[in-house]
């Protein structure tokens, strides 16, 4: 992995690198670097499998973190490429020409986070949600509890057996994240 990263560093401008395990590393890159880097990894380094494409909403920084995880089957190692895109203009380059499966991920991200991938097939069609009218539901500023209470009728009399609540109310033990 070290040698691979060193080789990549010679050819591409890499950002911060996290080595999670000997066979797993994450690299943050600029938007322009991503496609050439992915193509190089796929064609020259043997990372033939796109494991996933996902997003994290860093609402405090105003960023979306996109992660492409690719897998090298022969040497059993993974590398994750991260790109940060601005939250107020979430647009990213599509990679479905490298891996056709990416088109599905891109459709999902468009629907769930509102991140646009221009040129991706059927990107504007509904993916899972039908007739969704609010902001994309995986964004962190979407309050799922509030939405649920406004949209659906709830049945009264719902109790909780949440251990943290029980300890706080009955045993006087403070703790937990709430």
């Amino acid at each position: 992995m070290r040698t691979l990263l060193a080789r990549l560093k010679e050819r591409f401008a890499l950002g911060p690198i996290t080595e999670q395990r000997p066979d797993l590393a994450f690299v943050t890159v600029e938007r322009e670097t991503l496609r050439p880097l992915l193509r190089h990894l796929r064609d020259a380094e043997g990372f033939t499998h796109l494991v996933l494409l996902t997003a994290v909403d860093w609402i405090e920084e105003g960023l979306f973190q996109l992660t492409w995880l690719v897998h090298d089957r022969r040497r059993a190692r993974d590398i994750g490429l991260r790109v940060m895109v601005a939250r107020d203009a979430p647009v990213m380059d599509a990679v479905h020409d490298l891996w056709p499966t990416a088109a599905t991920y891109q459709r999902e991200l468009k629907e769930m986070f509102g991140i646009d991938f221009p040129g991706s097939p059927r990107i504007d069609e509904e993916f899972i949600l039908e007739g969704w009218v609010d902001i994309p539901p995986y964004r962190r500023d979407f309050d799922t509890l509030k939405f649920s209470e406004e949209t659906f009728e709830h049945r009264a009399g719902r109790g909780t057996t949440d251990p943290a609540t029980h300890m706080r109310e009955h045993l006087g033990i403070q703790g937990g994240s709430k």
């Binding site: 649920s148 659906f152 049945r155 009399g157």
Partner: peptide, 19 residues
């Protein structure tokens, strides 16, 4: 189907079937 169960705060599941 009764009160949403573990999906009580989900944005996409109904909570009371008899509605």
């Amino acid at each position: 189907t009764i009160n949403g169960g573990m999906y009580w705060d989900s944005y996409n599941t109904i909570k009371k079937l008899d509605q």
